[in-house]
Design a protein around this nucleic acid. Structure first.
Lengths: 165, 165, 165, 165
DNA sequence: TTTT
DNA sequence: TTTT
């Protein structure tokens, strides 16, 4: 189990790169902040933490590319990962990032901002819900998409079943 | 470990009651919805799930009372709990709720809506951050509230310490 | 966002059923318990909560079928779902369950118990790690399975890449 | 929202230091690993990620000090935090850690190992349950510790209440 | 009964 | 009905 959950705001427009074989990679900076009232002084305090988020999942990269802008509020679920690299002096350096890649990774927009003018179909606009990348196939509805259809990886459950499980 | 995390919208203005000894209890109905595109038809699908949330924590009850209205988007972290009760026929019935009570419970408003007109200082308005009930004392800032002060339950960490841990 | 995380013990051997079209469904009862010391009396207290877990995901059902026995300790990640049904008097009843189905659902065994004698390949024995159902394909390793291979839904990241992202 | 959840094994006996004013700080190295079967070759693969965990919470430090040894399996819940420090060349360096401090932080032992011979009362032995640091007071039981007692920060809920909430 |  |  290695899970990171962040809700925060994007500090700058995302950078999207591509690997040599064409896969997209999105880099985001996310600020999470907490506020509290000081026990003694009663003053309001705030602390902000910045996180580097790296999106490898192609479907989620599309969401980032199309909808995520500076200031957007995001829900992020990924994994902690530390990379080793060498600086210009040849010294070992380590960077820890929140990686969104494959199973268990999610990115959801929590506000309406960032959407292009005429965006229809609204992937990325999922306010209060979850929108998944294309790679995942059907998520986990309890309603019944194509019960008869069956087929690989169909996770659906039919609520109309007359026998309560 | 018994944790529920919800991000969703409030279906109706919260109900606040009080126990005989005066403690507040808030009841909320929260809708979580997910959308996906059907594999076969390509149609957009949506499924909404409704949750009953019961807030026992006093600080969080205050937040609910003052700021949470129908339609508000909330982040909720609590525990699953099943109550047994008798219906009018004297039969055992069970209700499962998401309970916010004590350690590990959180409620954060994810939009600016729901705030009363002149609310200043904005507990409950924590966009992208966390606002905690009064019972918790200082949350977990890395900055340094009153290092010298010490005192019971001070969890603060001093980033200015010259020795990296 | 609708997520439940449980770590607890299985109260009885799981029941596995099959739908008419042959998909397996596993039912589990999981106990989560918390202990604390009473503030006033100093006595040790304990409270146990029981949860019904329904596994629709086929790969996870296999894990359950083969390895999960009464007493096993499990890590569970799923969604809250409430079913409506009619009792024998024709009255509406509701049951809330933790559903493991599709994206974002996980089940991991946290102890070595429950494994058959000669189990090889050890799905279900994942001590401290995660073992995923077959439906998910490769999870999210940072190591490099078949970089050149590419192919649909390959989430892998190559740590050997010479350019730090 | 800034949350990290880890389930993994401790790589070495923890180091405990104290600040100048006597507060304990525990440092842990935790390995999370995931295993999967390669899509193409069918071979079993494994990837391990190492995390630095810093425990500021006093109650949790006690648990670490008394019970956590190399090899122990832990459930950890904390926050991501990045510290800035200078290396010997005076260059800025950053280290990202999982910090357990105050609200929302938890550490639970998931196996029986690590307990001293005659440990009674078993804080730290909470297999399948939660054991909280002393700072938290009573956690969130639904049962009823001292309803009449009332008192600050009492989060208890009385299941014996005759009115179902 | 919410929201997009 | 589990576990410590």
């Amino acid at each position: 189990m290695n899970k990171v959950i962040l809700i925060g705001n994007v500090g700058a427009d995302p950078e999207i790169r591509r690997t040599q074989d064409g896969r997209p990679i999105a880099n985001l900076r996310i600020a999470t902040s907490e506020t509290w009232r000081d026990r003694n002084s009663g003053e309001r305090r705030e602390k902000t933490e910045w996180h580097t988020v790296v999106v490898f999942n192609e479907g989620l990269c599309k969401v980032v590319e199309q909808y995520v802008k500076k200031g957007a509020k995001l829900y992020i679920e990924g994994q902690l990962q530390t990379r080793k690299w060498q600086d210009q002096q040849g010294q070992d350096r380590y960077s820890t990032e929140v990686v969104l890649q494959g199973f268990g990774s999610t990115l959801t927009m929590l506000d309406g901002r960032g959407e292009g003018g005429g965006a229809s179909g609204g992937r990325g606009s999922a306010a209060g819900g979850n929108d998944y990348g294309d790679d995942y196939g059907a998520p986990a509805p309890s309603s019944s998409p194509s019960r008869a259809g069956g087929g690989g990886g169909n996770f659906s459950r039919d609520l109309d079943d007359d026998i309560p499980f």
